[in-house]
Design a protein around this nucleic acid. Structure first.
Lengths: 252, 252
DNA sequence: AAGTGGTCTAGACCACCTT
DNA sequence: AGGTGGTCTAGACCACTTA
């Protein structure tokens, strides 16, 4: 109960949010049912549902049909919050570091490879400095840990650069895939990371099994060769509620 | 029109989403009005509104009362997508780099300072390795460019470390605030960045004027002294639709 | 004034979970 | 069977924008 500003559904949402923020409702706790809220706020069902929707889209609450609404846990699982060794040029494929970390923890990462030759998305084309019509080879994976999806990633190579290489095959490259680029005369010299937050599309929501209201971190790692030409982009889509990117600077 | 899976409102949303993704509806274009959609899908108003809500929460669409629904622009404005010179230990306060960049572009960054002594949020306490009850000095700012808010940031110092220093005053520290730490015998030696995506709370939505469905990137930069003790956390909250973090690795 | 979206109600039927 | 959330309808009134 409170005399807040604005519309009824906002007042309901504000009240519930405050109860969550002050700890009156703890993570995992069940919220009052729709029926209860209808009674205590003298609101219609649609109105209390709209309030609950707001909290869901803020990432504070999740709903489960037949069970109820629950306060979401802040689950930055420790074994997902890995470190990126920014000096490691040899293993600049991010997932290699993760996989090594995961194996140390006794968990088995997996992921089926999908290789295709396509037009790149606009973002990727910009990063690889490709003109309209220039294609790419895309090597995509949904990565699973203990059969649960935890990240999606893809590596894009300009088609013209790798057209006769092993990278076209739908098989794992033993060791470092960047080695293939080196064999082709494009040894990596440096890379840039571009990090942004966005909402997942429905496909990603399904593939990563993220609840509504969960943004993803999109990390694009652009690799450049000796001539400073971008030769590949490694893209990772990471659920915001499971992952925290860590960069270490200036460590000896 | 299409025979998709699932509920009616999902089919409507899927259709509209496809039109956006294929470019049939371009960024900035107006979507069909609710009335039109009711007609073409033979759905009730609540149902088409639910479909439109979905697209809004995916960050694809925005609505404007009295005007209509519009396809959102992917506005990673170039002058916000700044570079982080990761080697610059002396000006590791991120905003200093940004402000210099902005001034180069002839834009005037501003931001009112707010200094307070409080209990730190759980995240900050973890990063500063503080026990229950140990306070911090928080120096917070909402940064404006040309009177438009574009980022929120705060720096947290353990109270015990800075209790008699200039950092307690609600005035700008000329030069580098980390210099004050150095004077106190805690010269910064290295720092870690922790990056995560999350949804803004209503306060941040208001302060940063982000439309619904826009996640933020939260960047925490933890500074350590010679004894490897964390001495300050600089936290930045960056609207995901305006900013792209760039890290450069291995550049000469 | 007419068109657009924003809030709210009352009621119906369905799907899922627990007992 | 009874409670919970999920989808959908029909209609009302309000607020904002454009002409």
């Amino acid at each position: 109960m409170a005399r807040n500003e604005g519309s009824l559904y906002r007042r309901v949402a504000d009240d519930l949010r405050r109860k969550i923020e002050t700890g009156q409702l703890q993570p995992g706790n069940e919220l009052p049912s729709e029926r209860m809220l209808i009674g205590s706020y003298k609101a219609s069902r649609n109105t209390v549902r709209k309030a609950l929707d707001l909290l869901i889209n803020e990432g504070l609450v999740s709903s489960h049909q037949g069970k109820g609404y629950f306060v979401r846990q802040d689950n930055t699982l420790p074994y997902y919050g890995r470190r990126l060794e920014t000096k490691l040029m040899g293993s600049s494929e991010i997932y290699q570091v993760w996989e090594a970390d995961l194996r140390e923890l006794g968990r088995e990462p997996r992921g089926d490879l999908n290789v295709s030759s396509t037009e790149p998305p606009a973002d990727i084309a910009r990063m690889l400095r490709l003109d309209e019509g220039q294609g790419v080879i895309a090597r995509k994976r949904t990565r699973l840990v203990d059969d649960q999806p935890y990240a999606f990633d893809a590596t894009y190579y300009p088609y013209a650069l790798v057209e006769n290489s092993r990278l076209l095959g739908a098989v794992d490259i033993p060791g470092d895939p960047d080695e293939v680029l080196a064999e082709l005369g494009h040894k990596l010299k440096r890379y840039d990371d571009e990090v942004r937050a966005r909402m997942p599309n429905p496909e990603e929501e399904r593939a990563l099994r993220v609840p509504p209201g969960t943004p993803v971190t999109e990390l694009a790692r652009i690799g450049y060769d000796q001539a400073d030409t971008p030769v590949r982009v490694h893209l990772a889509v990471l659920p915001g509620d499971r992952l925290r990117l860590v960069y270490e600077h200036g460590r000896e």
